[in-house]
Simulated assay, not measured.
Amino acid sequence: MAFLRACALLGMIVMVTLFAWAHHNARIDPIVRTARIGFRDWPAGAHPVSVALLSDIHMGNEAMDAVRLGRIVGQVNRLKPDLVLLAGDYIAGHRASVARAFAPQLVEPLRGVHVPLGVVAVMGNHDYDTDPAAIRRALRAANVRVLDNEAVSRGALTIAGLDDLFHHRDDVPKTMAAVHRLPGLPIAISHGAARPFLLHEITLELVGHTHCGQVELKPLGIRNPFTGANYPCGITRSGKGITLVTAGVGTSLVPFRVNAPPDLWLLTIGPAQH
């Protein structure tokens, strides 16, 4: 009996340790991943644009609070990008009460982003699941420009912002019409990968949503079906198109990460180099 009690105690200690480790992994500073993406049709004489891409902040659970988001913003500022893009999902969970309680906590940290070309964002599925009006108010208060099937010019880039496809709010023709009215080389940002962009003159799409699986047990022979159903994390080239999927900085339902650390991307977008 004593042996069984010892085994049970040991098992409990192991489980608590694993949960604590997974929770710690969800709150570490994001890994900064870098890439240079060149275009042959880059506007002549235009300077390259450095872009910081963040997604899936998910304020409202144990993995994200205003202090941690402020620390991440400081990390971004130290990278000195020209432009910051946010790829949706600012709130954790699916309840409107969570958005109303935690959306205001986005304001002060995001207002601390200091980049010359500003912050441009799109909404995600959790935002529409909760209270999109409360989230939009918070983002506007933080001087974030939210795109709803719209486009804006920033430096030599035109940013096409596709609204959330999971709630059928995406409108590619409307977005492309907005793109065609603006100068600059077009790139796209959306919460989830929207393949139609790669067929409509935009060859670079920046997205989040998948968290890179969040809990990825592939080394143990366990495949995460959510990861397999989406574009893999990182950069995927398909024909002429490039889709970049970031792991995001927060977590959705449970504040755990295993083999899928939080990350953000620092991209240099400019002319093609031989």
Rank of each mutant, 00 (worst) to 15 (best):
A2V: 07
F3P: 04
F3G: 02
L4E: 10
L10A: 15
G11Y: 07
M15N: 04
V16H: 01
L18I: 13
N25E: 15
N25I: 05
I28S: 05
I28V: 15
R36T: 10
R36E: 15
R40F: 00
G45V: 05
A46W: 01
I57A: 08
M59D: 00
M59T: 00
M59N: 02
A63K: 00
A63V: 01
L69V: 01
L69T: 02
V73F: 02
D82G: 01
D82E: 13
D82L: 01
L83G: 06
L85R: 14
A87G: 14
H94V: 12
A99W: 14
A103V: 11
L110M: 14
V115T: 13
L117D: 06
G118S: 10
V119R: 11
V119E: 12
D127I: 10
D129K: 11
R136Y: 07
A138Y: 13
R145N: 02
L147A: 13
R154F: 12
L157V: 08
A160N: 07
G161C: 09
L165T: 02
L165Y: 06
F166T: 02
H167T: 03
H168I: 00
H168C: 00
R169F: 05
D171I: 03
V172E: 13
K174Y: 01
R181G: 07
L182Y: 01
P183L: 06
A188V: 07
A188F: 08
I189F: 05
A193G: 02
R195C: 01
P196W: 11
L199I: 02
T203I: 01
L206H: 02
L206P: 04
L206G: 03
V207G: 08
H209P: 07
H209G: 09
H211F: 03
C212F: 08
C212P: 01
G213K: 11
V215Y: 04
E216Y: 15
K218C: 00
I222V: 13
R223T: 14
F226L: 15
G228V: 01
A229Y: 09
N230A: 15
P232Y: 12
I235C: 08
I235H: 10
T236H: 06
K240V: 02
L244W: 12
L244A: 13
G250S: 05
S252C: 05
L253Q: 10
F256P: 02
R257H: 08
P261I: 00
T268V: 13
